[in-house]
Design a protein around this nucleic acid. Structure first.
Lengths: 189, 189
DNA sequence: TTATAAAACTAACGGTATTAGTTTTTGGGG
DNA sequence: CCCCAAAAACTAATACCGTTAGTTTTATAA
């Protein structure tokens, strides 16, 4: 019975395109509707509103990130897996700067689905860190440290904060290398 | 000749209050004007517009952060100074969550004044790291690592990402401690 | 005391999200 | 084959936002 023009996936994909090309603040129902050759009230047949759309984008982003991280560690363990995951993380933020932005920023309400998508990523990190045999508390500290580094680095890079001439890629390698070294030191202490 | 009601400092202070209490997205000329018991066009006698106001807030935030960091390291060196600075940084983001948000997010144009305020903070970090006698490249890597940790941790904490039961303060101490240890290892290698 | 300039105001415009109500289209049941 | 119900588009309207233009008020310097 429906008209076959739009569907929610097409809407989300287009919104992600706008976000990645022009930034998250450029994602409005007006620009989105224009890009989809439709009037903005028509979007309400598929989404509840702008806030709801951003929630959908966030969920999409979290799931895509999880998939990329999972793929990156396939067949790898310990340091190799950790390196791969770290690189996959920043690769994602570079490929999808706008999507990453909306994925990170806290929505007004976090429902179960959104929480699970976030928890799944944390669980994957736990899975990789299991190889290091840290006790529970230290593992949590380590996860928080890793997430801080990954998110902080990505966020600062996107906002153009790393302006100096030294190669940014080298810096990231250096930072992750030292972080991993630190885990090993703790382990044998 | 002017009426003595408003001035630009009062406007910025009030905008910062709104940002810290309700988030940066709640800072609109409308809410700001209401809180100042004035009509929103009146604000244009003091500021050029909303974008300009956010630039002023960002500059204010950077300068305030610099001051807090400077005060924190007074009379301290090396590890002690680094610890103090790290704690002062997160203390600032907790005291001024909204101001920190607008301070970090990149404005559309970065003028000289804004750039200098950011550079001053980086210079202060360089000043503290000088004690470790790192070569230039490693120092830049280290600065980027430290900034990533500080910003990443603050940002994730603010967005409620550290939900597990383990004490967040302990995690931060652990992260900074290991970061500092890593600097020492590089130093003597 | 008065002229002037700053700072407030009102009115208006274009852009936004959103709601209500209407028209169009489409695909399955008679 | 047709028709009708439901989905999906539309138009019209509302409320809020930032911003501009033009007007009025007010404080102070001369």
């Amino acid at each position: 019975m429906p008209r076959v023009g739009l569907d929610i996936n097409k809407i989300i994909e287009t919104a992600v395109e706008i976000a990645d090309q022009e930034g998250i603040e450029a994602v409005t129902l007006a620009t989105l509707a224009r890009k989809l050759s439709v009037k903005s009230p028509s979007l309400f047949n598929h989404i509840k509103g702008l806030a709801s759309l951003k929630r959908e984008m966030s969920l999409y982003g979290l799931r895509l990130l999880l998939e990329k991280l999972k793929n990156s560690i396939e067949g790898k363990q310990q340091d190799e897996a950790l390196y791969a995951m770290a690189y996959a993380y920043v690769a994602f933020t570079r490929e999808h700067p706008g999507l990453y932005e909306v994925t990170i920023q806290a929505p007004e309400v976090i429902d179960g689905e959104l929480k699970k998508a976030g928890d799944d990523i944390v669980e994957l990190i736990i899975y990789v860190l299991k190889d290091y045999n840290l006790d529970y508390e230290k593992m949590i500290h380590t996860i928080r440290g890793l997430r801080s580094i990954l998110h902080g680095f990505s966020s600062l890079e996107q906002s153009g904060a790393f302006a100096l001439s030294v190669n940014v890629e080298e810096s990231f390698k250096y930072i992750i290398k030292n972080f991993i070294k630190a885990i090993h030191r703790v382990d044998r202490k």
